[in-house]
């Protein structure tokens, strides 16, 4: 099964397809997937209902994927509001 396409809603796909990177270019398919994962983790990292084991590891994962989106010029923003 293609996990990527299975987990994307059509709304997500549209926003990822139209998303521009820091150089003003459209994202490749892999980059779109990375950006969607980043966005999902960012939503989860702010979810205080999750237990510490989940929240803490999600924040660690978000820090890692933040680095990927930063290195690949997909996104560059600060994340302290969600504890990262």
């Amino acid at each position: 099964m293609n996990l990527t396409s299975a987990s994307k809603s059509s709304e997500d796909l549209n926003s990822a397809e139209n998303k521009l990177n820091l150089l003003g270019q459209l994202l490749s398919e892999d980059e779109q997937t990375l950006w969607l994962i980043y966005r999902e983790l960012k939503n989860l990292a702010g979810n205080a209902k999750l237990p510490p084991c989940a929240l803490s590891n999600i924040r660690a994962a978000l820090a890692s994927i933040w680095q990927v989106t930063n290195d690949l010029d997909i996104e560059f923003e600060q994340l302290y509001e969600v504890g990262v």
Binding site: R59, A60, L62, A63, S64, W66, Q67, N70, L79, Y80, G83, V84
Partner: peptide, 8 residues
């Protein structure tokens, strides 16, 4: 440093 700063 925060989490992502250290990652960087």
């Amino acid at each position: 440093d925060g989490r992502k700063d250290w990652q960087w």
